[in-house]
């Protein structure tokens, strides 16, 4: 479905992503792992067109989307929830979700999706007319995901969905994410929280200092302490290392 070929992203003299290639097949959940500053956000931001591509190629099926604008890429069925949620705080939950479906013309379909998604995320139903900034962190994350789903994407890219959430919420969010697959969505999940992400992913890529260091089945990576320690610097008990944030802009 999505294939990225030798993609590079630069911010001035800093090369955040260097000749990265990756593939996401239809129906998969793919985890993109790596320490802070590895270039994960830059990579998916380049895919969606928010940051310019320095070189390389991004294909969505047969369509070249390399230098398209984000709004055009979204209209082709790819979307992304940005890191740190980025819900529209001044708008209500309802208004946020309406914006999520802004590109769709099928009113009946929108209504149906809305009902189904609200059933899956009942807290949003409760807070339906509240201003989004009054929601808790976990609720905002759910809102960001549902908002993205409202455009009925074929491919959804989630940037650090677990960031800043309490551990029990993290598991809940990942569980919700894996149910999205049942709605026919392909997922690319960017995470620092490798352990959780690997539980739900089919395959994983590990990115570090802008380059792919590992690719393979999620189980292979999760099952091997050596691999985890080597690529993610994760020992039995230690968390993700605090790598320099240099490449993140």
């Amino acid at each position: 479905m999505l294939s990225v070929d030798l993609l590079s992203v630069s911010y001035g003299a800093i090369r955040a992503v260097r000749e990265v290639s990756l593939r996401v097949e239809e129906g998969e959940i793919v985890a993109l792992l790596g320490p802070n500053g590895a270039g994960k956000t830059s990579l998916i931001s380049a895919v969606i067109g928010l940051v310019p591509v320095a070189s390389g190629k991004v294909m969505l099926g047969d369509v070249d989307i390399t230098r398209k604008k984000p709004e055009d890429i979204v209209r082709l069925g790819v979307t992304m929830t940005p890191e740190g949620r980025h819900i529209f705080g001044d708008l209500t939950v309802d208004e946020n979700l309406r914006l999520g479906a802004a590109v769709r013309k099928d009113k009946a379909g929108v209504k149906k999706d809305l009902d189904e998604l609200l059933a899956m995320f009942p807290i949003l139903q409760e807070r339906y007319n509240s201003r989004a900034q009054t929601l808790s962190g976990g609720e905002q994350q759910q809102l960001a995901i549902v908002r993205a789903m409202m455009s009925r994407p074929k491919l959804l890219m989630l940037d650090e969905p677990s960031l800043g959430l309490a551990p029990q919420l993290v598991e809940q969010i990942f569980q919700l994410i894996s149910t999205l697959r049942d709605r026919g969505v392909t997922l690319l999940v960017v995470e620092q929280n490798a352990h959780e992400a690997l539980l739900f992913a089919d395959r994983a890529y590990v990115l570090s200092t802008g380059q792919i260091r590992f690719e393979g089945a999620a189980g292979e990576l999760a099952g091997s302490e050596d691999l985890m320690a080597h690529y993610l610097g994760i020992g039995a008990e230690t968390g993700a290392p605090d790598a320099a944030d240099a490449a993140k802009v």
Partner: peptide, 22 residues
């Protein structure tokens, strides 16, 4: 939608574009 988008754009234009809004 365009009105909502304008309000939303005042805090976060990029995310508005991620809604597919031009």
């Amino acid at each position: 939608n365009i009105g909502l988008a304008m309000r939303a754009a005042s805090t976060d234009f990029n995310t508005v574009r991620l809604m597919g809004i031009r």
